[in-house]
Structures are given as structure tokens and as C-alpha cells.
Design a protein around this nucleic acid. Structure first.
Ligand SMILES: [Mn+2]
Ligand SMILES: [Mn+2]
Ligand SMILES: [Zn+2]
Ligand SMILES: [Zn+2]
Lengths: 126, 126
DNA sequence: AACATTATTGCAACATAGTCGCAATATTAA
DNA sequence: TTAATATTGCGACTATGTTGCAATAATGTT
């Protein structure tokens, strides 16, 4: 499966990059110029995740948010996402707080995926 | 709105208590003897949450899990849930790791709700 | 430039999780 | 026993995300 450069992938990645935050499907659809199908957006985002260009966070609203990877993939060897995410209850912004958080687990527990979300009010809304 | 003691509320709370873990809607429905409607289960659980008897966690599978409150409500004055939850990818168990986690936020950020979930393999499944 | 291969898209249908309106029922207090 | 009303069951509905399939478009080759 060799990836192809399409109009959709370019535009979706651009929206994510220029936003700088984690975006949900509908946020992306709003910020996009052209009309890209809902299913296509999801498929493109999931492809990005598989390729390690983007990581997915499940918000405490139950929705999926996607953010460009920064401190993983390229720079590091490991693709780790053990950082906190903040979701503003006022403006809806979801951001990665780029500070790795070491969480001690009980004996015998093996961590695979971290999904750490704090919601509240961001610096603009508090 | 004065709460009433019904068969449904008693049974659902009993299932949560005897399980000791956080349970999703369908887990509860399985572990329940009688037939209680889906909508009723959700309404009962949400009522428990409002009353501070139970807290809700959004899993990294996007589903709602409900767990009886232990270190909040009664003993403490504050109803805080800044503890980590662990979801086993093998057996599906979701548990509260009863260790409060202080997360430092950037200036101007106000935390309201913590939703911290780590998934992986529990002591029984690793 | 034209072609063949096949990754990607759009559309519709589907799946799942959760909520809501409303009439029927059951709990509570008088 | 009765009245008031919180709770339930049922069905319909919403929201979010996935999937099958035919049409389209990106890519490498001739
Ligand atoms: Mn992140
Ligand atoms: Mn908990
Ligand atoms: Zn905000
Ligand atoms: Zn397990």
C-alpha cells in the first residue's frame, strides 16, 4: 500500500498544521475550503495515524480528536503519547500539553495507550 | 426532585458494588438478573452521578464507564476524580487506580474534570 | 503522451452508543 | 386509600464513526 498525494490529504493535513491544536472531524470539516466527504476525512485521518504523522485522542466528550505528532516519530525513536491533553469547555479548543507524564502502574500492569484528558477553561476563557 | 427507591436503582447499584470496577452500560445489562430497559439504566446511572454516588469515565474506546465513588463524597468534602483509570485490552476490565495524581497546568488554565485512562494489559492478562 | 495499476474518493447504508418524549407504572407521603 | 409525582418502558431519534462498492484520480511504465 503505497500512499498517494491527493488534494484531500494535503488540505486536511494543512488544516491540522495551521490550527496547531487537536481537531475533531467536524472542526476539520468547518475549517476546510472544499467539500470533502465525511468518510474520506475519517479515512485520511486514520491513515495519518497509521503512518505516525498524527495521533488520536478520545475526548471526555467521547469524540475523536486528531493532532499532528511533534515529540515522537521523527525526533524520538518511540512513538509515545503519554502527555496530557486539555479541552476547553468554553471555546472547545483541545491542545496537547507537551510535557511527558510518567504514570506509575501497579505490578503486572502493562501500559499500551495513554489517553489523558483534562477539561476546564483555557487561558483565554478562564 | 426527591429520589425514590426502586428495584432498578437497587439492582444497578448492587451490580456496580459487587463488581468493584467501572462498568459500561452493556456490562451492567449482562450482569443484571432482571430485564431493565436500556434507557432506564442510563438514566439511573446519570442520576447516581448527579448525586455523587458514582462517577463517569470516558474510556479510550469512547464508551462511558461508571464506578462507585470511594475517596470522594462521603469522606472528603470535595468530589474529585483526579485519579488514573486502567482499561485492559484483553479482559475489558476498567478499574480506578486509587492514587490521586496532581497534574500541573500552564498559567491561566483551570481544571474542572479529569479523564485519565491508560489502556494495556492488567495483572491477570499480561 | 497514453496506458495500466490500484490507492483513494463519494455515496449510501450500516453500526453503535446514548438521549428524549410520552404514556403507563410504581413509590412516597398525606 | 388516595393524590402527587418520580421513575420506567417503549419507540423514535441524534450523533459519531465505519464499511461496501463503483467511480475517480494518482503513480509508474511504456
Ligand atoms: Mn497529543
Ligand atoms: Mn475512578
Ligand atoms: Zn477556551
Ligand atoms: Zn485483563
Amino acid at each position: 500500500m503505497k500512499r498517494r498525494n491527493t488534494h484531500s490529504t494535503a488540505e486536511i493535513f494543512e488544516v491540522l498544521k495551521s490550527s496547531g491544536n487537536a481537531l475533531s472531524h467536524d472542526m476539520i470539516q468547518e475549517n476546510i475550503g472544499s467539500d470533502i466527504d465525511r468518510a474520506t476525512i475519517y479515512r485520511v485521518l486514520n491513515r495519518f495515524c497509521e503512518d505516525g504523522k498524527v495521533h488520536k485522542i478520545i475526548g471526555d466528550d467521547g469524540k475523536q480528536y486528531f493532532a499532528i505528532c511533534h515529540n515522537c516519530g521523527e525526533k524520538k525513536k518511540v512513538h509515545s503519547h503519554n502527555h496530557i491533553h486539555f479541552r476547553c469547555l468554553q471555546c472547545g479548543k483541545v491542545e496537547c500539553l507537551e510535557r511527558d507524564l510518567a504514570v506509575p502502574l501497579p505490578e503486572g500492569y502493562v501500559a499500551k495507550v495513554h489517553n489523558l484528558v483534562i477539561s476546564g477553561f483555557c487561558n483565554n476563557c478562564s
